[in-house]
Design a protein around this nucleic acid. Structure first.
Lengths: 162, 162
DNA sequence: GGAAAATAGTTGCTTTTGTCCATCAAAAGT
DNA sequence: ACTTTTGATGGACAAAAGCAACTATTTTCC
């Protein structure tokens, strides 16, 4: 009979997650934390640290010149004031420019700068690399399926038809 | 020929997500936001609002009496000081109690209160309900597979053997 | 044509949260 | 005995998110 090891009853290895074991929210939340930290590390010093939406904003402005802040806000589920501040930051870092929209006096159009475009290229690589790293060991087919499901859930949540 | 509709070039419906379209982090982040807000709504007034780890803590303490704060901290990926404050809050709300661990003078064991146990029962229902609501329209089999993948990624991230 | 409602954006404020750092006590390893 | 980890606490600080109020423009609709 093995010697009784003294120590805590419940350790990280032995505890079950209760009902959370089969629940979306727990995993999503945890993985989100892990993913964010990891991304911060990978973006070290890249002017776009702390993924509060900067990455999405950067890429969207790069691929959709003239896009409006409010559109991005909806996509990243933030309110306009937060979005405004985000844009301020990025302009200070010389990643974007802001112009009045031609057709609507209330709105603005965002445009990428040279520096922003360069950064966008790097960020694209990093983001896709991270994704595939986290998927290490998961069969290609499952990856696709997972992304598919998440995409569907996301689109429904944001209020886009499937 | 259809009349040219004036309006912004890029709308929420028409923009693509660039490279993020196929990237884990974006969806995880967004869905996390949506999920958190939704959960807050469902937990309205339930003493465990704002899901910063309270839910996980509550359930874990309920199903693992005597569990230590530091173990929970690891599972929810927070540092001990944040965890301590979390426990403080929950003790104030009379959901938990804190005792010195019998076998280790530094450590504590957490225990659930009556009130906490009652809340845990409600929270379990709410959490599973939310999960299935978000999965609406996704075939059972895919749900299982998705959770499976997320579980694997999570366990690896926290540092548990597969 | 004009009043009312909706939309885009900005600003200020408050609250929450998380992180960093130092400290202290106990345990484990040498 | 000593040094090094580990568990927990407290303070200070910074980032971030949510709210509400306000301006300016546009759209709606009577």
């Amino acid at each position: 009979m093995p010697k009784k090891k003294k120590g805590p009853l419940h350790t990280v290895e032995t505890v079950g997650l209760d009902v959370l074991e089969d629940t979306l929210s727990f995993y999503i939340r945890s993985i989100n934390i892990a993913l964010s930290r990891d991304l911060d590390d990978r973006l070290e010093g890249l002017d776009v640290a702390r993924g509060t939406g900067k990455i999405t904003t950067l890429l969207l402005v790069d691929s959709h010149p003239g896009i409006r802040p409010s559109v991005i806000a909806q996509l990243i589920m933030r309110d306009r004031s937060a979005m405004g501040r985000l844009v301020d930051q990025m302009i200070e870092h010389d990643l974007l420019t802001r112009e009045a929209a031609a057709d609507d006096g209330r709105a603005q159009g965002l445009h990428i700068t040279e520096k922003g475009a360069g950064l966008a290229r790097k960020v694209r690589k990093i983001a896709t690399k991270q994704s595939s790293d986290f998927f290490a060991g998961v069969p290609e087919e499952d990856q696709k399926r997972l992304l598919d499901i998440l995409r569907r859930v996301y689109r429904r949540t944001v209020g886009l038809g499937q």
